[in-house]
Design a binder for these strands. Structure first.
Lengths: 206, 206
DNA sequence: TCCCTCTCAGACAGGTCTGTCTATCGTACG
DNA sequence: CGTACGATAGACAGACCTGTCTGAGAGGGA
């Protein structure tokens, strides 16, 4: 029952690995079930026994990438000590991601764009974005700024911009510009402690 | 030959209008040819006579939206006088766009995510993004900052972030945060005229 | 009147995709 | 030994999509 990591991966593990490669490289809609089971070396019945249907496989694929992404950021932040370095380090971690030779854009952006509204992809993505927002807010608070949520909101826009630009014009230098911009925003937030607190009472990330 | 705007729209015009509605609302891949010709009240042969194939219709749809978007921004900027107001006005124009009740995310992001690499969608999108970048660079130069291209680059990240966030968590307040962040970046660029010019020799937007 | 162009209506072929079903095989366990 | 279970291989149905083709109607200009 429990997957044994040694010896031979189970059909489920091979399916998830194959889906991760194919869905990410060529898109969810464009990749048929037959391609996935061929890559995994698995019978079609095994897919439907393990995941129910294609949507179940898509969910597992996105949850895998989400957890891997969050773990990668956490791992990168352990290198930094001061609150400022840790906050800006989020963009260093992003830079490592988008300069990876296998990088092919944001899997969540692609999956949400392909799927109709209210899909599984949007559900998994909302959790992911909420975690990122919470992390940025926490790091901003550690820096002692007056409005951590407002600063996190703006930093998240920069983060999203790098994601977007990285897909649209395949530009691996975007994150370094984002890091510079983030530093400027952090400086401005530290210097202006009580400036009529602009619009921080806006809704959370949903 | 020339489309007469009065009386009755030609089959081509009705097709383009129907494609604009359906492709934008439900995606390019998900919308079949039959749905488009039914909405347009047009025969299938008219579509293939006017656009060659579905990809030709997709190209015309994206070019229509691109030109409409650029014209809307230009129109919005005529309200502003000073260079600073005009630069920040780009985000006001974006705010008007994403708070429109019919707004459903960025058509180019959706089309590029659905299509494989090197598609028509990416081609039209590259032109669009180049225009936006050029506009931001020009407006930054009018503000007299030391590194207009670098500032435009960061502002474009904010602009993209709003686009991304507007699709992912349907947040119409994103552009006001982007405007605040843009103002802070502009202030920082004006105050620091000769600060070792950081990384502005990076490649253009492609 | 004749012709030419644009248009409509719909059948059709050829392909792809998801999901179900049958039938067989190998192995671990009681 | 026998049985139960996970896995394999592949056929099949039903649906959808693109693009082509046939056949006919309407309207304006020479």
């Amino acid at each position: 029952m429990m997957p044994k990591s040694a010896a031979k991966p189970s059909a489920r593990e091979r399916l998830l690995a194959a889906a991760n490669e194919l869905f990410y490289a060529e898109g969810v809609q464009s990749t048929g079930i037959d391609r996935v089971i061929e890559r995994a070396g698995v019978a079609k019945a095994s897919l439907y026994n393990s995941f129910g249907n294609k949507d179940g496989l898509v969910r597992a694929y996105l949850e895998l990438r989400r957890d891997n992404n969050l773990a990668r950021i956490d791992r990168a932040l352990t290198r930094f000590r001061t609150p400022r370095e840790r906050l800006l380090g989020v963009f260093d971690a992003q830079g490592e991601q988008i300069t990876d030779p296998g990088y092919n854009g944001c899997a969540f952006m692609a999956a949400c764009s392909e799927a109709p509204h209210g899909s599984t992809a949007e559900e998994v993505t909302a959790v992911y974005r909420g975690r990122i927002r919470a992390l940025l807010t926490e790091l901003a608070a550690d820096c002692g700024v007056a409005d951590p949520a407002g600063l996190a909101r703006k930093l998240h826009l920069l983060y999203d911009g790098v994601t977007f630009s990285g897909r649209m014009d395949h530009d691996p230098t975007a994150s370094s510009f984002a890091r510079e911009a983030a530093a400027a925003l952090l400086d401005a937030a530290e210097k202006a402690p009580a400036e009529a607190l602009p619009a921080s009472q806006a809704p959370a990330a949903t």
